[in-house]
Amino acid sequence: MTRHPISLTVNGEVITAEVRSAQLLSDFLRTELALTGTKRGCETGTCGACSVTMDGDVVKSCLCLAVQADGAVIETVEGLGTHDAPSALQRAFMEHGGLQCGYCTPGFLMVAKDLLSRNHDPDEAEIRAALSGNLCRCTGYQGIVDAIAAAAKELRHGH
């Protein structure tokens, strides 16, 4: 089967590659680019563990072909911060118990980033609505909601 050339920007870096038509964006990010922060969970669009932003909007990378990302600007959890210099959002997740096993965390971080880019002062209902496409099997939702509210506050006050 023919391979399709694609060119996209991932975490600020321009990537060119050739992909099979049936390759999912989630699979491309993990296996071709070794960006394994993006998780494969249900792979049916339910759990949100594979969430990344695409041209600024959070999407599920298991519901998107790699060829559909041709020309797009993708950001994964690896683009948010580093171990030594985590982003305000990542720090808030650590401080407020926003993760237990951690498997769903990259997805939650990406939807939280999308939310805070549009809404600097979300109330709890807005935060919960933004999280409605993500599942946490540890059911640690309250910590996640608290972390996002705290990060929003910190970002508003401009640390």
Partner: peptide, 9 residues
């Protein structure tokens, strides 16, 4: 409708 990520695609 659906969820935020799906509404964005």
């Amino acid at each position: 409708l659906a969820n935020p990520q799906v509404r964005n695609r």
